[in-house]
Amino acid sequence: MSDIQTDDAPVTASKLAGAAEQVGIPDPHGDTLLARAVTINKPAQELYDFFRDFANLPSFMENVERIDVLDDRRSRWVVKAPGGRTVEWVAVVTEERAGKYIAWTSEEGADVPNSGTVTFRDAGERGTVVTATILYDPPGGVIGKVIAKMFQREPAIQARRDLNRFKQLMETGEIATPAKNREEFEEMGL
């Protein structure tokens, strides 16, 4: 019998060690890996330019309260967490290629250690496939992850929603909203 472990699942679903390195996350921080993608009918460079200005991200990332751009490579993120709390970290861009990808990692002391990549791949006449691959440590471990899911604050749920809002914003210039406003949904615990 071989000592080599194999796993035919997509690498983002793999339980094997080293999955983050296989998807190209440099300097990985975290133990939970997720990936989400959306096709946006805009050129890759236009999407990259909007995304790379991190001050733009709270306009479509629902749980991001604010991002303070500290310099060309560093930004402080303040993100909503369950129970009316916020979590914070400083993200550092570790690699990037204009119009193609951005990779980051959190600095030591992050409330939620994380790292990842956002890639922008040409899809011909359909536009651009934007893929977010994120590695993170949920606060409170498995219990914290369950609580975050219950309050719709779990990163896998948010990544899908945020990418869909990014698509709406870039293709139409606005984000469709439900009849109730954000505060009303938060009062309901959603």
Results as ranks from 00 to 15, higher is better:
I4V: 14
I4W: 05
D7N: 13
D7W: 03
A9G: 06
P10C: 10
V11Y: 00
A13N: 12
A19S: 12
A19E: 04
G24H: 06
G24A: 04
D27S: 09
H29S: 05
H29A: 13
D31E: 14
D31T: 14
T32E: 12
T32L: 14
T32Y: 08
L33I: 08
L33E: 07
L34N: 00
A37S: 15
A37I: 00
V38Q: 05
K42A: 15
Q45I: 12
Q45L: 14
E46F: 09
L47T: 11
F50A: 06
F50D: 05
F51T: 03
F51K: 00
F51P: 01
R52A: 14
R52I: 00
E65H: 08
R66V: 00
I67M: 05
D68E: 10
D72T: 11
R73V: 13
R73A: 15
R74L: 04
S75T: 05
S75Y: 00
R76G: 02
V79A: 06
K80E: 14
K80I: 01
A81F: 11
P82K: 02
G84I: 13
R85S: 13
T86V: 14
W89Q: 12
W89I: 06
V90N: 08
V90S: 07
T94P: 13
E95D: 08
E95F: 03
E95W: 04
E96Q: 15
E96P: 03
A98R: 15
A98H: 12
G99D: 10
G99V: 04
S106Y: 11
S106E: 06
E108W: 03
A110G: 13
V112T: 12
V112Q: 10
V112R: 02
N114Q: 10
G116N: 13
R121H: 02
A123H: 10
G124P: 05
E125K: 08
R126Y: 13
T128F: 10
T131H: 10
T133D: 10
Y136D: 02
P138H: 08
P139D: 02
P139I: 01
G141M: 03
I143K: 05
G144N: 13
I147L: 12
I147V: 15
A148S: 12
A148D: 07
M150D: 07
M150K: 12
F151W: 01
Q152K: 15
Q152E: 06
R153A: 14
E154S: 09
P155Q: 10
P155S: 07
A156K: 12
R161I: 01
D162W: 02
D162C: 04
L163Y: 10
N164T: 02
R165N: 13
F166C: 03
F166M: 09
K167E: 06
Q168D: 09
E171D: 03
E174H: 11
T177L: 09
P178Q: 10
P178Y: 02
K180H: 09
K180V: 01
R182F: 13
R182E: 15
E183T: 15
E183W: 09
E186A: 08
E187Q: 13
E187R: 09
E187V: 04
M188Y: 00
G189F: 11
